[in-house]
Write a protein that binds this DNA or RNA. Structure first.
Lengths: 226, 226
DNA sequence: TTTAAATGATAGCAACACTATCTTTTAATG
DNA sequence: CATTAAAAGATAGTGTTGCTATCATTTAAA
C-alpha cells in the first residue's frame, strides 16, 4: 500500500499554497536544500529562483519574504514531528516509555520520509537545528504569534507537557520542561558538532549521548518532584 | 572611590578597538540601543552612523560587518557576566550556594552598571536574550570559533561546569548542564514574554519563577547522580 | 612643529528586497 | 471544443543594503 502524508498548513503562512502546485513544491524542496547549503542569511529568493529555473517574482507569489518561508518550513517540521510522536507513542500506556520515545524522536537524526515526496527530512532536521529558532527570535514574534504561525511548535510543546504530567502530576513546570527538552535536543546537537566544549559529547559526537543526558535531566526532575 | 571596569576584548573581534576612542564607544552604545529598538535584522551600519552623527565608512573602520559587531557585543556581555559571577561567588565555600547565585545572575534582569560608562547592561541583557544565539547560529561558526570569538561564552560555561562538579563529582554531564542553564535562563525569559504558552510563567511573568525552575532542574539532576 | 593617525565627506557599485506590468501557458468549465 | 480564468514566465524598475575607495580635514603624539 502506498500512503501519502499530507500536512495541512495554516493559510497565513503563505500567499499561495505551495503544496497545491509543482512550482510550490519545488520552492519548498529547493529552499530546504539552499538554506542547508549556504545558511539562512545567505539565502535569497533570487538564488532560489535560479536553482528552480523560475524567476524571483514567481517565488514572491507564494511567500511574502524569506522569513515567512522559514516560518513555513519550521512549522511544517514541528507538525510532522508531532505526527511522528503521536504515531510512535500510540498504544503505549507507560508515560515514562512514551517520554523516552519523544526524547529519541527529538534528539536523533531523522531519515528521509519517503511518504513526503518534496521534503528531505534528514536535511530539514539539520536546518531546524541551526536556523529554527530564528523563526521566532525577531521583533515581529508577537504579531506572528497572533496569526498562529507558531501553533505547531506550541502544540508539540503542549503534548510533551501533558506526558510530563502523566509521569508525575505533582511536577510544577511541565511546559517549561517541555520547551527545554525541545530546545536542548537541538542546541546540544549544534554545540556537539560546532562548539563541542559546551557539551560533554565532543569526543564521540554521538547523538545517543544527548538522549542519555536529556533522559537524566527529565527523569531526575520528575522523580524528585512531589 | 571611583572604580572603572574595563574588559579586554580579543583583538580579532574588531578592526580598530572601540574602547580606545570616543567614536568607538559611541558605536557600542548606540548599536546596543538600535538593536534593542529595531532588532538585529533591521539594524544597519547606515542607521547606526546616522544615530551617532558619523558616516557608514566610519563604522566600517571599527567592525568588518554587523555580524562581527554582534559577536563583539555578546562576547562583552559574557565576559562581564563571568566577572560578576566571580565577584558574587567569591568567598562562598558551599558550591550549592554558589550555583544558586549563578542562576540568579543568569536569569534575572540586570541593572545598569555605572562603572561601564558606555554600556547600558539592562538593555544589553534584553538584546542578548533575543539576539545572542544569532552570534553563533551561522555557517561561519567553526571559523569564528577558531579565532576564539566565543571564548567568553565557553569560559563562563566552563566555570559553571566546574561548580556543578563541585556540587557532585559523579554527575556525568557538567558542561551540557551548564550550557543548558545558560541558554534556558534566556530562552525561558524570551518565551515568558513573547510565547508564554511555552512556559509555566505566563501568568505572572516573574523572573523569580524562572530561577525556581532552573534550580529545580539543576539540583534534581545533581542530587540524583551518584 | 611636524607628522602620523583618525575622522569626515563624498562617490560609487553590486547584490538584495521587493513591486509592477505584460505575455504566454495551463487548467477548469460550460 | 471553445472560452476564460488562473498560474507562471519574462522583463523592467526602484529604493535599500553592504561594502570599498579616495581625498580632505581634524586631532593627537613625537
Amino acid at each position: 500500500m502506498e500512503i501519502q502524508l499530507h500536512i495541512k498548513m495554516n493559510e497565513k503562512l503563505f500567499l499561495r499554497d505551495p503544496e497545491q502546485s509543482e512550482l510550490g513544491k519545488k520552492i519548498i524542496r529547493h529552499s530546504i536544500q539552499l538554506i542547508h547549503k549556504n545558511g539562512f542569511e545567505a539565502f535569497t529568493f533570487k538564488k532560489l529562483a535560479e536553482a528552480i529555473g523560475t524567476t524571483e517574482a514567481g517565488i514572491y507569489r507564494y511567500f511574502e519574504n524569506k522569513h515567512r518561508l522559514l516560518i513555513y518550513i519550521t512549522a511544517w517540521y514541528w507538525s510532522w514531528l508531532e505526527y511522528r510522536v503521536s504515531f510512535q507513542t500510540n498504544n503505549i500506556k507507560d508515560p515514562v516509555v512514551k517520554l523516552k520515545m519523544v526524547i529519541i524522536l527529538l534528539a536523533t537524526t531523522v531519515e528521509d520520509d519517503i511518504r513526503t515526496s518534496y521534503v528531505d527530512e534528514g536535511i530539514l532536521h539539520q536546518i531546524i537545528v541551526t536556523e529554527g529558532s530564528k523563526a521566532y527570535l525577531t521583533k515581529r514574534v508577537s504579531e506572528d504569534n497572533k496569526d498562529h504561525l507558531f501553533k505547531p511548535y506550541k502544540d508539540l510543546c503542549a503534548v510533551i507537557g501533558n506526558m510530563i504530567l502523566e509521569c508525575n502530576p505533582h511536577y510544577k513546570y511541565p511546559k517549561s520542561l517541555a520547551s527545554t527538552i525541545i530546545e536542548m535536543a537541538h542546541f546540544q546537537n549544534f554545540f556537539m558538532n560546532n562548539l563541542p566544549s559546551l557539551t560533554d559529547f565532543g569526543k564521540n559526537k554521538n547523538e545517543a549521548e544527548i538522549v542519555l543526558f536529556l533522559e537524566d535531566l527529565v527523569f531526575s526532575s520528575l522523580n524528585s518532584a512531589q
